[in-house]
């Protein structure tokens, strides 16, 4: 009666937990770099482990990690609650879903980097709509005003997404041989 979970399932569960921890470490240990044209935006690498995990373990695992990290961030660290939670999940899910879905279809090196690039662009585009939709609600600004503030924000999102995607791609390439040797075997 007391049979445990299969090792493959367990390894998936612990890996997701540990990649979420890595993302929090990126956020907490490495200080954010402010972006001069829009000083309320800061560059951080918290998305790198999430993108790597979504390339290695698939889109579902990536989204689960994103949800966990966003919940801990929004309720346990920044305190922007449910709003911050949704902002983070929507923004980063585009960034990780596009490359991991493409990677699943075509596992080649080139296709992976193309997917990562598309993910970064996709995130920047999604954020334009999102800023127009949500930002007026909590700043009280007219849509036209927000449109005027968009260029630096779009530039920042492109840079942050692009840089994180590129780093994630390089790390994934370095990790892949290892994954074949001991993680893929069981996952």
């Amino acid at each position: 009666m007391n049979r445990g979970m299969a090792k493959t399932q367990l390894l998936r569960l612990t890996s997701i937990g540990i990649f979420a921890a890595l993302s929090l470490v990126m956020l907490l240990v490495i200080p954010g770099i402010p972006f001069p044209p829009a000083p309320f935006l800061k560059y951080d690498m918290a998305d790198v482990p999430i993108i790597v995990a979504s390339l290695l373990y698939g889109p579902v695992a990536g989204v689960v990690i994103l949800v966990i990290v966003s919940a801990i961030q929004a309720f346990g660290i920044i305190g922007d609650g449910i709003i911050g939670f949704f902002m983070h999940v929507v923004a980063s899910s585009v960034l990780l879903l596009i490359p991991s879905l493409i990677h699943r279809r075509r596992p080649g090196k080139l296709a992976m980097f193309v997917g990562l690039g598309l993910g970064a662009v996709g995130m920047a585009v999604a954020m334009i709509f999102f800023n127009l939709l949500i930002t007026p609600l909590y700043t009280g600004l007219e849509r036209q005003v927000i449109v005027g503030m968009l260029p630096p924000i779009v530039l920042f999102n492109l840079m942050k997404g692009g840089l994180n995607a590129a780093i994630a791609g390089l790390v994934t390439l370095a990790l892949r041989p290892l994954i074949h040797s001991f993680v893929r075997r069981t996952l």
Partner: peptide, 30 residues
């Protein structure tokens, strides 16, 4: 930074593997 990230990720993967083994040994079942 990549020279830091790769060893960090490898060590994280190892920890995930060890933790899964430990949980399996203790009959974790959800």
């Amino acid at each position: 930074l990549i020279s830091v990230l790769v060893p960090l990720f490898v060590s994280a993967l190892k920890r995930a593997d060890e933790l899964a083994t430990a949980m399996e040994a203790r009959c974790y079942r959800g």
